[in-house]
Amino acid sequence: MVEASDAEYPDDVVDLAARLVRVDSENPPGNERPCAEYVVDWFTEHGVDAELVPTPNTDRPNAVATVGSGDPTLVLNGHTDVVPADDPDEWAHDPFGGEVEDGRLWGRGSTDMKTGLALAMVATLNRERADAEPPGTLVVHAAAGEETGLPGTRTLIEEGYGGDYAVVLEPTELRVATSAKGVVTYRIGVHGESTHASNPDEGTNAIDGARDVMDRIDEYDARLRERSDPLVGQAYANVTAFEAGTGSNMAVVPARAEFLLDRRILPDESIEDVDREVDDLLAAAEREDGVVAERETVQHYASAGIEPNHPLAELVRDGTGDLAPDEPWGMAAATDAREFVADGTPAVVWGPGSLSEAHTVDESIPVAEAERALPILESVVEDVLSGGLDG
């Protein structure tokens, strides 16, 4: 007979990942609290110290757990939020069903990144259960808002839950990433003059102006693609959303159009330089095309990285062995590793699952990969906290 607590708070990594997937924590709108509360309850049920840590000016808490004491401190970092599942009818599997079928765990967040969070939780519990008092301190982050730039991880670091080293458990197919692109999202507003659609020449259609700006963005993107980093690849600029005329009568030429510009940032590029490039683009549109537009920064994730052969990276590569390529590598997506690097803490990104599955319909992860990852992570934890990176 399975005890109720075993069903509700499983200590098997796949069962726990499935249980986490069943907690709807979509962002937006930012519904992380139930998942953060579950993480704290799970640790508490298993006798591990855990608490909620509020994110400033929000009702969206982070969860944190700690095992051990003394130096060094290793942080295992994950986030509780997932991107929206959108229309569940498009899914072959319930996006919040946490179903295990055909050797895969299905559901929103299965890859990005509740399986990684489950790994951190089980590895920490197993360390707590060790017979002897193990050296060092292990900290688990279950941060809010990673998908939209809410400073969940930053809050935990500033509240004293940082460390000497960090492993961010995003999906990398067990490759070790030592660097990641940054990203900035701008909201571009294009001005026009409204008029009745039956007399379009009496106004200025903001959509036409937006076309001119987006043509310039296409040219900008072509130039950016000539810039490249050996680990993370090319820089890009893409329009990812567009809106105009939605708040007025259908027969009105819109006076304003807005769109989002996603600019991927290489490690050797600064946000100041990127801002300047976009400002120059908009100034040229006004000067040469007569289009008046302005930008607003919606969110910014800095690029970040450590030396490809940092001892932490080498340790995780050695532990992973032939399960993944061992050459230096970087991620095309931004991660919360940047928060640790900015704080002077060496951090790598490593975890089961493929980034290509993240944010997709019928997101899933191979359960065998998750199961293989657990002993690797436990070995890394033991080596780091036993002083394996000293000297």
Rank of each mutant, 00 (worst) to 15 (best):
E3W: 02
A4M: 13
S5L: 11
A7Q: 12
E8N: 10
P10Y: 02
P10M: 00
V13I: 02
V13P: 14
R22T: 12
E26S: 15
G30Y: 00
E32G: 15
E37Q: 14
Y38V: 08
D41L: 05
D41W: 11
E45W: 05
H46Q: 05
V48F: 02
D49T: 09
A50L: 03
V53Q: 03
V53P: 02
P54Q: 05
A65F: 09
V67F: 08
D71L: 06
V75W: 04
H79R: 09
A85T: 07
D94K: 11
P95C: 02
F96Y: 12
G97P: 11
G98T: 02
G109I: 01
S110F: 04
S110P: 06
D112I: 12
M113I: 13
T115L: 06
G116A: 08
T124W: 00
A130E: 15
P135E: 00
G136N: 04
V140Y: 02
G145W: 01
P151N: 02
G152I: 10
L156N: 03
E159Y: 04
Y161A: 01
V168L: 07
E170S: 08
V176L: 00
A177C: 10
S179R: 05
S179N: 03
K181P: 08
Y186A: 02
I188H: 05
G189W: 00
G192D: 06
T195C: 14
A197W: 05
N199M: 09
E202D: 15
E202Q: 14
I207Y: 05
R211K: 07
M214A: 05
E219Y: 09
Y220F: 15
R223D: 13
V232R: 04
A237E: 03
A241W: 14
F242G: 14
G247T: 13
M250A: 15
V253H: 00
A257R: 07
F259H: 01
I265Q: 03
I265D: 00
E272W: 04
E272R: 11
V278Q: 07
D279M: 03
A284P: 12
E286W: 04
E294N: 09
A304T: 13
L312C: 08
L312S: 07
E314D: 11
L315M: 09
V316K: 01
D318N: 10
G319Y: 00
P328K: 04
A334D: 04
E339K: 11
D343E: 15
D343M: 06
P346A: 01
G351N: 04
P352V: 01
E363Y: 10
S364M: 04
P366W: 00
V367Q: 01
P375Q: 00
P375N: 02
I376F: 01
E382L: 10
D383L: 09
V384Y: 07
S386N: 14
D390A: 14
